[in-house]
Design a protein around this nucleic acid. Sequence first.
DNA 1: CGATTTAAAGACCAATTGGTCTATATATCG
DNA 2: CGATATATAGACCAATTGGTCTTTAAATCG
Lengths: 204, 204
Amino acid sequence: MSRQTPVQLPRGRPRSFDVDAAVERAMGVFWSRGYHATALPDLLRATKLSRGSLYAAFGDKHSLFLRALDRYIADALTRMDIELDPRREPVAGLRAYLAGYVDRTTGAKGRRGCLLVATAMELAGQDAEVGRRIAGFFKAMEARVADALSRAKTADKLADGVEPSSAARILVCFVEGLRVVGKTAPRRITLQATADALLDRFIR
Amino acid sequence: MSRQTPVQLPRGRPRSFDVDAAVERAMGVFWSRGYHATALPDLLRATKLSRGSLYAAFGDKHSLFLRALDRYIADALTRMDIELDPRREPVAGLRAYLAGYVDRTTGAKGRRGCLLVATAMELAGQDAEVGRRIAGFFKAMEARVADALSRAKTADKLADGVEPSSAARILVCFVEGLRVVGKTAPRRITLQATADALLDRFIR
DNA sequence: CGATTTAAAGACCAATTGGTCTATATATCG
DNA sequence: CGATATATAGACCAATTGGTCTTTAAATCG
């Protein structure tokens, strides 16, 4: 028996903008420009909010950034949960996972980069809130990849001597490195071949 | 018969500070804080120069940054030239190369990060001068690693099916990814084992 | 309606930004 | 010495920074 929401229903003019959409637009700005290079006017333009509304809704620039980062991380983990779904064939899942990174690392997307990697480099060392999120993301990603590799091993699809947890760490470093190298817009075909070559070292 | 330097010897008070040392100190600041987060007073404090001297010697913040970046790149390439010296055994060279990255990715060094990766993420997409330097560095690194792998292959030290140029691209992505993951200060022993596991997939 | 709440617009703020310029001291030359 | 060149210290600048606050309009309620 689910209760109706117990909060007092608000009495005045209701909120007229979509907070999540605003976070998403702000995320886009931080993603393209980085934290320090993003100025308030950029965020106001992107969210189409007034200064007052933005500060009322999010507190300050840093809090809004954390919301945007959380959104980015959640999106990435959701994507991985689809690609590496335990009901799929694990090697196919790993291929999809790598192909996704190759895709995001090529051309304009590649040049735009990755909010997570950029944030790791720009803030993770100095900002504890950010640092915890970045570390948590890498851990979560590694766990998912390791799990997929484990299932591949169970299905006897892994090459001799490949240990899932170790190979997972290799793959995590590799894909994050892809995001770095992708800033110089290498050719898609090259990246895809590189990713394939790495995975081929792991599978039977 | 080498001529004396043909430039007019300067007539006034000679420069009394070491330009290269100033670049190196500035590099340290950019390295620790990133480009946008570095303010002029930070650079003046680090270089112990007055505003006037700094602008006279380097033009502006951006030019000084490029000098610092060039210095960082030159140092990195010099290091690689030693580690991957053709007169050394190539696999030992590759081990030294990876061990160097593991070392720089652990603990305080790891948390400080890598000026090159941070710059790639912060500026490479928007700043053409920076973009060219980053792309050039990755290309130079890849060439050196590929060369070492080629020599290893000639010495029949490579596992079956390992292609030097492809494996070099994998290693470049891997080490740059290490620098990203290193921002969350993972354990040295884990990173070393991960690097070893990767290299072991390539050698016979 | 009137009370309440939120929105947008923009004035306003102190602090900081990158950068210029002046004054003055100092070091080297012929 | 006098000319030349460079150093430092710091005043100064317009523009921008993140952030607050006030005003006014709109939207919902009882």
